[in-house]
Amino acid sequence: MIFDIRHHIASLVAIFLALGIGIVIGTSMIGSEAITKQQEKIINSIEREFTVLREENKKNAEALIQAQEVMANQKKFNEAVLPVLVRGKLQDRRIAIVDLNYRKEHDSLVSVLRSAGADVRSITVVNLMLLRDQQLNRQVAAFLGRSEEVAPDRYLPDFARLLAAAVLSGGNEDFVRFLDESEIIKVSGVYGPPLQEVILIGGSNDKEQDYAKVFDLNMIEVWKDAGINVYGVEDSNALISYMRYYQSARISTVDNIDTVFGQVALVQAMSGYPGQYGIKETADAFLPPLE
């Protein structure tokens, strides 16, 4: 256990204050045996407090080293066991990933899916924050037939439907090319059929970029109408969770996809155990059955 040293710091401040007062009084009452003894008591008390503090700091340092060793071993274990848990469970499943909240941890998700045998056909990283740029905002609005200057949430439903359709069909090439050249999206892989499933990575850390209702849900609707299985996921530390939005669209969700546990949960959900998984209050279970 890591001890809280704030109590000791407050105690030391109080002791030093008392010592200072004692010194002031002592200088005005030189020769007072009572004052001298009191000062000795205070000094001895300070020494005892420092001794206790040093011991607790030593224990804290040792506990921290032990915790780091446990975490390192846990990471090694996860890396060794994960491929075994997911092997062959998504064999030849054709999947697209659309990432609205890009983190480097999501690179490991792609590796897990491929370890499970999936064919990850395309990865699309969408950066809607760029729409804060007024010139780029006007360009996107104009491309979508909005001649007047409008806020992004006015045209994002159309944006979402066109991009979702492009992921499915490989169409809307001019729009996709424009988005790519503007760096609003970054695409790797190939759009179009055959495609069976889409993983949508959402969640937000910025209230001003909470576009789940106008963007994410419209993409999900397009995919579901086309008979595509959709899975909504987000990071465990997302400040603004999209899980309730995704669950309202009746899709399986995982709220800790940046962890090994979340990645295993997603593979299991995709292999026959749909549901709401993770660590947040919107989850029904931590993991699906691991059969």
Rank of each mutant, 00 (worst) to 15 (best):
P288N: 06
Y245W: 13
L113W: 05
E33T: 10
A63Y: 07
N256R: 12
Y231P: 03
Q68T: 03
D284E: 14
Q263G: 10
M243Q: 12
H7G: 02
L109V: 12
Y102D: 11
D99F: 05
A61M: 09
I15A: 15
A72K: 15
A141Y: 12
G170P: 12
I228Y: 04
L287F: 12
A61T: 09
Q91M: 13
H8S: 06
L12P: 01
T124K: 04
T51W: 01
N73A: 14
V140N: 02
K213E: 13
E208Y: 11
T51L: 09
A96N: 05
E173G: 02
A18H: 01
V150M: 05
L109F: 11
G117C: 08
S115R: 06
E33L: 13
G189N: 05
V230A: 05
K59L: 03
V214P: 00
V230M: 01
L287E: 07
N57S: 02
S111E: 15
G31R: 07
D107T: 14
K89E: 09
G232R: 02
A67W: 11
V84K: 15
R250P: 00
L136K: 14
V24C: 06
D210H: 11
V120G: 04
A61Y: 03
E148V: 13
Q91C: 00
N57Q: 02
F215G: 01
S241G: 03
L163N: 04
S45A: 14
V187E: 04
V112H: 07
E208D: 13
E291L: 06
W223Y: 02
D119W: 04
E40Y: 02
A160G: 06
I251E: 02
E221I: 06
E55N: 10
D174E: 15
L12M: 13
N101F: 05
M270C: 08
P157S: 08
D107G: 14
L128S: 06
Q139I: 11
D107I: 11
L53F: 00
E33C: 00
V150H: 03
I123N: 08
D92T: 07
I123C: 05
E47C: 04
G171N: 12
I199Y: 00
T282C: 01
D284I: 00
E62P: 00
G202A: 11
L163S: 07
F77L: 15
V214Q: 08
D158Q: 14
T259H: 12
N44A: 15
E40G: 11
I228M: 04
N44M: 06
V81L: 14
P83Q: 08
K37W: 07
A165G: 10
T282G: 04
G22N: 08
